[in-house]
């Protein structure tokens, strides 16, 4: 059977990122790493708080793994190809730059997210834990937000070392200082300012919500802001890639 040229190029790009034994290691680990969901759920007395805590990035091994794979793909595969010129081989295939960008983006960013979503939903179904869709959406949007920042930095800065440092500072800064700021504002009960910072770390608001607070509108506004920024970054990455000179 002969596949289209586009599919062949996509296969090349995909294989470059998921060489054996990447999937063999990542998928089962992601699936099993969800045991923290049970553990936190049990400790919280089977309440929302347990689910929310289990979904906080870094605490959630599965989410951290998805993010790390996305990061590795963007910085150390795509970034390295741009830095060392390996991408020339893909650019000089008879398919458009737009499609190449799309395939790279799917392989680098979307596929790790699909792995995470599938394993998490499979685990939640097996464990009989129903996860609120908005909790899932919080991570999905946050994931695109941070990976798109890295993608834009990669296409702009090109050097993997510099991108790693810049990404750590930018994303770490947003989440850590955002978290501290939101915690302070939560204690102050300063609702208007909470709206302003909500995009920086909506998990803190989720914890407040699980503890009986009424922060759902703020959480939704944070997720919306994250999504809008992620879309803007995606569009800018696309524009940079189309004009990328090698």
């Amino acid at each position: 059977m002969r596949y289209s040229r586009s599919f062949q190029v996509f296969r090349m790009i995909f294989r470059e990122r998921y060489r054996e034994p990447t999937l063999e290691l990542v998928l089962p680990t992601m699936l099993v790493a969800n045991i923290f969901l049970n553990a936190y759920y049990e400790r919280s007395g089977f309440q929302l708080l347990g689910i929310v805590l289990a979904f906080v990035p870094i605490i959630s091994v599965s989410e951290t793994l998805a993010f790390a794979i996305g990061f590795r793909n963007i910085v150390y595969v795509t970034g390295d190809h741009i830095y060392k010129g390996g991408i020339i081989s893909f650019i000089t295939t008879p398919i458009s730059r737009s499609k190449i960008f799309l395939y790279i983006y799917i392989s680098d960013v979307i596929i790790p997210l699909i792995f995470w979503l599938l394993t998490t939903l499979a685990y939640a179904t097996m464990a009989g834990i129903s996860i609120p869709p908005l909790v899932l959406l919080t991570f999905i949007v946050g994931y695109f937000f941070s990976e798109n920042i890295i993608f834009t930095l990669t296409l702009t800065l090109r050097s993997p070392g510099i991108i790693t440092l810049a990404s750590l500072f930018v994303i770490g800064g947003i989440f850590i200082f955002g978290g501290i700021g939101l915690y302070y504002l939560l204690l102050k009960r300063s609702i208007e300012e909470l709206y302003l910072l909500s995009f920086m770390n909506p998990y803190l608001l989720w914890i407040g919500q699980a503890e009986g607070g009424k922060f759902m509108p703020i959480i939704i506004s944070g997720i919306t802001a994250d999504a809008l920024i992620a879309i803007a970054l995606f569009v800018s990455s696309f524009m940079i890639f189309r004009r990328l000179e090698l």
């Binding site: 002969r2 596949y3 470059e16 060489r19 595969v77 390996g86 020339i88 081989s89």
Partner: peptide, 26 residues
Amino acid sequence: SVIFTTIYHPQEVRVIEYLKDMGKIY
């Protein structure tokens, strides 16, 4: 076709994969 001083293709790829992939594309 464009030829450079060195191969601009991911260096972890094996020769057979590289050539087969190019063959499949065309």
